[in-house]
Amino acid sequence: MQKRLSKTGLILILPSIIYLFFLSLYPTIYTVFLSSKEFNLARPHKSVFVGIGNFIRLFQDDLFRRSLLNTLVIAVFSIVLELIFGYIVAEVFDKRLKGMEALRTIYMLPMMVTPVVWGLVWVYIFNPNFGLANYIFEKVGLGFQPWFASGGTAILSLILVNIWQWTPFTAIIFLAGLSGIPNDIYDAANVDGAKWYQLIFSVKLPALKQMAMVTILIRLMDNLRLFDLVYSTTQGGPGSSTETMSFFIYRHGFKFFNLGYSSTAAILVLVFIILVSQYLIRLFYQGGEIGE
């Protein structure tokens, strides 16, 4: 009986496993294979085996190093600020007042709506000559800003949009955490005469630690593969000021058709993400019943 049941179970999950094998595992192996070759789609018959040649070339490639650095800068600044703003927003939305639920849902729209659309809207708002941002900036005396149009400010603008789009994510997770704190803890703190800042630092923030960890890891992975936003705003420019790892891979693969070299970079991103994700998955399982 037990044996028959386990056989039925296996039959049920088999289609998914085969599917995922062909659409995930096989492509990964294929990427490793391609990375050992000098392979250009424009000249597919002239592919040459180069071993780890692509990797050596990649590590000497200034543009790749730049894309790595940019990705990390975007990730770190975005995540830190999202955590801070997210906490503040969560505190505001945590007050159980009439209509708060509706406001909360509207607030989530930036992370739900198609990223390409956001990218383009922000390019329009940030247009140096006729954009809304500069109009307002000049009205309040902050002066002209080049936004996406200059190498110095493009990456800052990108981070700004990123934060704007994803703070809701951090906020609603923290919100779930705050509403999970039992009321008697607040009562006890009140009786003890705890000040509001004591409440924040010794009750709320410790209670949010685990959630902050999950948020950081998920957002880190999002940022490591950041593509849509870059594609729809700066396309890596001006110069290479906003080139990210994903965009580097895309550009080499599908603009220059250099699939071998592009695969090499893809593998590095993959390794990065595997390291982060294994840690994240362990966190998922640590919760025991988490995921149910």
């Binding site: 492509p27 990427t31 895309y250 893809a266 998955i281």
Partner: peptide, 10 residues
Amino acid sequence: MMPPVAVVIP
């Protein structure tokens, strides 16, 4: 968790 950009070439 796999990044789509790594899969999209193959």
